[in-house]
Write a protein that binds this DNA or RNA. Structure first.
Length: 731
RNA sequence: GGGCGGUUAGCUCAGUUGGUAGAGCGCGUCAUUGACGUUGAUGAGGUCAGAGGUUCGAAUCCUCUACCGCCCACCA
């Protein structure tokens, strides 16, 4: 027996060394496994992409949970003899990264991005992301992740750039990408649009004003937008206003003097709300915009892109809307146009989740993806859509899940997914930030050129906007495998088997990947979507810097080891449920790592190498122990196949601690100290069998300690436990 | 406003096609130089949120109610 077993298990002294050993073996890369004969060249493949962490900072417990789950799945499949590939990568996270760097620069130097210019900003961002990237890659290793580093990808590297440009051009040529003036979510602070999904709503208490608008009373929370209101809208069925006809003109006195208003009848108006009459501001409100579109009404901009009032505001011109509101109300009061004010109006404001500013809807020329436009899918592997038939992105996204070609776990998220698709509007993909993939469109005079490469002749100017970061993320399952080239990786490993990610990004990412893969490959990006929950603190609160309840994965690994950290994030959490984590839980599993260590010590110290050569005749009792073991293998394997890692881990834990240690070993002491040599030999052989099988079972969950013990075993099938065959069982 | 989830031992959660309630942590008692200073044995503790229904039988299926949480939404 190795002397190391005389001391308690020490994760700090072990883990980095073990990781290095794995990495040096090359077996994270399936090609090397084939070369070494660990799996056959035509073995079934198993592939999964790592949801690329943002290069904005460091990994948190949510990442740690994701890594633990994925690594367990990957190690399990690798041990089952599949050609297993897990692709690492990082994401540029355009808006989040740029705004973080910008605010750092502003804090230190009081300069904005316009002061330092596009080129200099890019330089600063690159320095920042490079630093951040190396921290992240180190953290991924610390968790024990068996990622194939030779296939590492970054959303902004050259290959991914090429994929993104190609995707844009092809979708443009199919008519699915178009430029148009629509109402968008404008962030006046970051000076960019953001997508619907990037906004969060925040409940706010405001004043609500009832204003006299000719013969009507209209309500508004935003008097500063009302300068241009010249349409008054009511429901066509509203009897109170049946004397007014659509198109009627009325003269009335308004903020800056007399105006002519036009009556519009539209069923978007809620008769129950307020007086059932409203005026519209199509430039700054989506509902109003859509009403205006339906009736072909004028749209006027009231607020500029910095949040200041335009000349239409008369004397208030140039004033910031925040300052202007009270002054405008004051003027309206003087003119006797204020009917009443409701002080306690609660409504929700849209905030940019990536920067924090209040969103101002604006009409802007932007690039959009049309999710409702018919196109012909030439080569389709999607069930229910024939090759050469016509479809839309929306239909395609729905079909793949409805047909069961993509399975979403847990089941309940399918409904959430359908609901989102049904309400999906055109996806605005252009951003007015500098960090990201620049849109491959060039302008010269009145001409426009769309292409993967810049036009050769001089004088063309590229569109200044960049693409929404989720556009490139949407390509991730296949851009990482070499698309648009037809690489062997792409044919072998796509569609990937599982996409494992948090339920909070089902719309941002999961849906976008299905969209992109459907259009560009006529296929699904993955077969199963496995969604995990959020990691919260022990009271169930979200972990955040301001509350100060963050548990840092690196600290925990330092204190209790990577194995313990992993297990604490798995056991006791059903798929899709949030996890309440406490330091105590992690500590508990450190004890478990030591338990298996000591079990090994006991067994190894009681056997001689010579006794393991071949299977001796076994006692009935020992046959029984092996059947119990086999039942554990069968049942744990089944749980992992169903992605119930929590149940599998718990079962293995129960078996090792409470069957193997508490019962089997206790009882073995008597047998081993006894006189019956037949019984003794049978038991020794059986204990060793149970130990090796237990190590295999536990390996995906606690890879470090199991590998370290494995390295000291006198007899084994393969040098590295990581690539040893998963124990067989009778189904 | 629409939808989803949760409510099971002090705490965190399991409970797989309905068959007399489970685990971990914590707690009580006893043992222990023990392979494990990170151990073992044993015990206490639950009308499975509430009400009604289906059934021979319900934590599990159906209906309603209450509370907690989450997501979506164009009530100005």
């Amino acid at each position: 027996m190795d002397d190391k077993f005389l001391k308690p298990y020490d994760p700090q002294a072990t883990e980095d060394k073990i990781y290095q050993k794995w990495e040096d073996s090359g077996f994270f890369n399936p090609d090397k496994c084939v070369e070494a004969g660990i799996c056959s060249a035509d073995a079934e493949t198993f592939s999964i992409v790592l949801p690329p962490p943002n290069v904005t900072g460091t990994l948190h417990m949510g990442h740690a949970a994701m890594l633990a789950i994925e690594d367990i799945i990957v190690r399990f499949n690798r041990m089952r003899g599949k050609k297993t590939l897990w692709i690492p990568g990082t994401d540029s996270a355009a808006i989040a990264t740029q705004s973080k760097v910008e605010s750092e620069i502003y804090k230190k130097e009081k300069k904005t991005r316009y002061d330092i210019g596009r080129e200099e900003l890019m330089k600063r961002i690159n320095v920042f992301t490079e630093d951040s990237k190396s921290i992240i890659l180190n953290q991924l290793r610390k968790m024990g992740s068996s990622l194939d580093w030779s296939r590492y990808a970054y959303t902004l590297d050259e290959k991914r750039y090429h994929a993104v440009m190609t995707a844009f051009v092809r979708m443009y040529e199919a008519g699915l990408i178009y430029r148009g003036a629509r109402i968008v979510n404008w962030d006046p602070a970051l000076q960019t649009t953001v997508s619907d999904d990037e906004m969060v709503r925040k409940e706010t208490k405001d004043k609500f004003y009832y204003l006299k608008y000719g013969p009507f009373i209209i309500g508004t929370a935003r008097p500063e937008t009302k300068f241009g209101d010249k349409y008054v809208v009511m429901h066509p069925d509203d009897k109170r206003y049946s004397k007014y006809k659509h198109g009627d003109k009325i003269e009335l006195e308004w903020i800056n003097g007399p105006i002519t208003a036009t009556i519009i009848k539209d069923s978007a108006v809620d008769m129950e709300f307020g007086t059932g009459v409203m005026t519209i501001t199509p430039w700054h409100d989506l509902t109003d915009f859509e009403i205006a579109e339906r009736h072909d009404l004028d749209k006027e901009q009231i607020i500029d892109y910095n949040g200041k009032l335009l000349p239409i505001a008369g004397e208030f011109k140039g004033m910031h809307i925040k300052k202007a509101r009270d002054l405008i109300v004051e003027k309206l009061e003087k003119k006797g146009l204020v009917e009443s004010i409701d002080e306690g109006y609660v409504h929700s404001l849209s905030i940019n989740d990536r920067g924090g500013a209040t969103i101002e809807p604006q009409i802007k020329e932007q690039w959009f993806i049309d999710v409702d436009k018919e196109f012909v899918l030439e080569d389709s592997k999607i069930e229910g859509i024939r090759s050469g038939s016509s479809t839309t992105l929306k239909k395609l996204m729905k079909k793949t899940v409805e047909s069961g070609q993509i399975d979403i776990l847990p089941e309940r998220f399918k409904k959430t997914y359908y609901h989102w698709i049904d309400n999906l509007r055109p996806w605005c993909i252009s951003r007015q930030i500098w960090f990201g993939h620049r849109i491959p469109v060039w302008y010269k005079d009145k001409k426009m050129y769309v292409g993967v490469k810049e036009p050769e002749k001089a004088g063309w100017e590229q569109d200044p906007d960049t693409l929404d970061t989720w556009f490139s993320s949407g390509l991730w399952t296949f851009s990482t495998l070499g698309w648009p080239e037809t690489t062997s990786d792409l044919t072998e490993y796509h569609p990937t088997n599982v996409l494992e990610t948090g339920y909070d990004i089902i719309f941002f990412w999961v849906a976008r990947m299905i969209l992109m893969s459907g259009f560009h490959l006529g296929d699904t990006p993955f077969k199963t979507v496995y969604l995990h929950g959020l990691v919260r603190d022990e009271k169930g609160q979200k972990m955040s810097k301001s509350i100060g309840n963050i548990i840092d994965p690196l600290d925990m690994i330092q204190k209790y080891g990577g194995d313990a950290t992993r297990l604490s994030l798995i056991i006791g959490v059903a798929p899709g449920n949030d996890l309440k984590l406490s330091e105590n839980k992690i500590k508990g599993y450190k004890h478990f790592a030591n338990k298996i260590w000591n079990i090994s010590r006991f067994i190894l110290s009681n056997i001689e190498n010579s006794e393991l050569k071949e299977r001796p005749p076994l006692t009935e009792k020992d046959e029984g122990l092996l059947r119990e073991l086999e039942e554990t293998v069968r049942s744990a394997t089944e749980d992992i196949e169903k992605y119930r890692l929590d149940l599998a881990a718990d079962k293995i834990y129960q078996y090792i601690w409470h069957s193997l240690a508490d019962v089997i070993l206790e009882e073995s002491k008597e047998v081993l100290n006894g006189e019956d040599s037949y019984e003794k030999l049978s038991r020794k052989w059986t204990l060793y069998e149970i130990l090796t099988t237990s190590l295999k079972l536990l390996h995906p969950f606690m890879p470090y300690v199991t590998e370290e013990i494995w390295s000291s075993l006198p007899k084994k099938d393969r040098e590295l436990l990581m690539v040893t065959k998963w124990p067989a069982h009778i189904n």
